[in-house]
Write a protein that binds this DNA or RNA. Sequence first.
RNA 1: GGAGAGAUGCCCGAGUGGCUAAAGGGGGCAGACUGUAAAUCUGUUGGCUUGCGCCUACGGUGGUUCGAAUCCACCUCUCUCCA
Length: 406
Amino acid sequence: MKFSATPKEQLEIVSTGAADVVSHDELLKKLEKSYETNTPLTIKLGADPSAPDIHLGHTVVLQKMRQFQSLGHQVVFLIGDFTGRIGDPTGKKKTRPALSEEEIRLNAETYKAQVGKILDLDKAKIVFNSEWLEKMTFADVLKLSAQYTVARMLERDDFEKRFKSQTPISVVEFMYPLMQGYDSVALHADVELGGQDQTFNLLVGRELQRAYGQAPQVTITMPILEGLDGKEKMSKSLGNYVGINDEPSQMYGKILSIPDELMIKYYELLTDLSVSELKAIKEEIPNRPKEVKMRLARQITAQYHGSEAANNAEAEFEKIFGKTGDGLPENIEEVELSAPAEGVTLQKLLTVTELASSGGEARRLLQQGGIKVNQIKETNGQKTYNSGDELIVQAGKRNFKKIILK
RNA sequence: GGAGAGAUGCCCGAGUGGCUAAAGGGGGCAGACUGUAAAUCUGUUGGCUUGCGCCUACGGUGGUUCGAAUCCACCUCUCUCCA
């Protein structure tokens, strides 16, 4: 193993864009030692197997991981299967169901396929924490628990909030940071990466490593990426996410809909532009916001689907929404239905094709002018269609269906 | 173990016997405006229904009543204080 970049150069590369590094000094020392002894550092990143679909928010940390990888370090991708198998009792309604081994296997495979778009999996190590957590005895667990106090646990932001607002916190939840920290012990991690919201957990890892006689890991946290709404953290449950498996046209459109203020952050965290390129973009934004945003959408789409697909996505977007286009997407999902002799009402068609989730929803859309049939606004839900009719129905801005009645 | 408080629609939260499918806010959806952005404004937001209307819903199960989210009993869960 030969490192092409000096420790100082490495330090600069990996700390760029990070929200926090604990600490720079320790990191530099580790990098120096690894450089001198020609030993790659072990870089840990944990993943939760309950949500196998990766979105752009997850990629922020993965990009950082890739930097370490291309600098020649050993990245370890840890899948928290043990944790997933236990489930999370927090919140009576949101109880995370315990996953079966089969589900976890499947999720892990899905994960790998997606992570592989960013990391070089041939050079990465993939581990499951059940490997060591499962074998721990109760005595081991007690020893582990003894390393941390309740008061310190309550320092964690969300615990503190919940404690103050008198919402339940189960004891198991206190175990999560400990388990995660113990993973670092088991892996002898030199560096752990995570989102900024993971800061506490990563720091627990340092404490535990010390307690178990190891040199504490350096923690690098990345800023949290806001989702499409520009307010909340990008997450699947909030629906404000861009999945890396999203269709190119979808991905392109979604990115274009982010608030302007977010553009630069997206450039910083989701693309691989240099500091000087970023600076140029920053200056361009006030003058040509639309162009800059389009370029962003194209660039990110290209990262996951190739530049050809990105260009097509842009062309299609223009076709639908641009001034020159005809307002229709390239490919519209076709639905064939057989119509009864007396015909079908438009309202019925909307619910059957799931353009509207219920009859009430369909009525509302019609009433509010959210429905177009063959590009003409239609407010009469009672209008009937018969077999032989072909119609393109649009619900809202971007839901299209081509309905063929037989 | 003892004493007290509480559980309402996607979320928060009002509502203490009929006018409550349930105030208000958030979120969502749609429209206007735009650059499919943000901000703003408007409308809408349980299900079935063109409509009349019907059904389901206020932690669970029973009960009181012509009538209950609202009263009673028991149960489940959560929080607070004391031990």
